[in-house]
């Protein structure tokens, strides 16, 4: 049974009221959604809130999923919309402003990410925190729209057509936005001597 078939089987069972099937479906994708939310919000509390909103939205709209696209595409369309909603409610911009400012040191970013990785091995923890803090510093340099495009393309492997549909823009605009964002990241990397 392929991954898509397994997804569809779990969705069918969940629609019939199987809590176990739903939980298996959630466990299959919660890692991707949570890390997506963490990169978009920058802190654990809001990431957890966003993830819960995403899966609640998935549950409420599960009957509308017809299998025309992959479940992951449908899932991240909802995730994208929920992230945008959260951003509009001003819950997202505040931590981004504090994280994205030039005033924020790498130690502050590390401290902010510490809660998410505190149960890991200390050496792994340090490595993870440093790597993730570096990524977060780069992402914080991007605008909200650029950040979404980069997230959906680099981490979620969405096509530009899918990104364009989610953001209600043309595919060419999505491609240009992506290129601009990546060029900006490269510039930021050179400034911070990452590369």
């Amino acid at each position: 049974m392929s991954l898509t078939d397994q997804d569809e089987a779990l969705i069918s069972a969940a629609l019939e009221g199987s809590a176990r099937a739903w939980e298996r479906l959630v466990r299959r994708y919660e890692g991707r959604v949570y890390n997506f939310a963490l990169r978009m919000t920058g802190n654990e509390t809001e990431a957890l809130d966003l993830m819960q909103e995403v899966f609640l939205g998935v549950y409420r709209n599960l009957q509308r999923f017809r299998g025309d696209s992959q479940f992951t595409t449908w899932l991240f369309r909802i995730a994208h919309n929920k992230a945008v909603d959260m951003n509009r409610r001003k819950y997202l911009l505040t931590p981004l402003a504090s994280l994205g400012g030039a005033e924020q040191t790498e130690d502050e970013v590390l401290e902010q990410l510490h809660d998410e990785t505190q149960e890991q091995n200390p050496l792994t923890l340090l490595d993870t925190e440093q790597r993730n803090a570096g990524v977060m510093k780069l992402l914080n340099r991007l605008s909200w729209d650029q950040r979404l495009v980069v997230e959906l393309k680099v981490f979620q492997s969405c096509t530009f057509e899918e990104i364009a549909e989610m953001q209600d823009i043309s595919a060419n605009t999505a491609k240009t936005r992506f290129y601009t964002a990546m060029k900006l990241l490269k510039t930021q990397m050179e400034q911070t001597h990452v590369v």
Binding site: W22, N35, T128, L139, V150, K183, L185, K186
Partner: peptide, 23 residues
Amino acid sequence: DTQASAAQLRQWQEVPVPQWQRV
């Protein structure tokens, strides 16, 4: 440049999901 940027972004380490109410 973009491939270097993407490589840097892919340094992200997956963070485990904390306990939450899944159902």
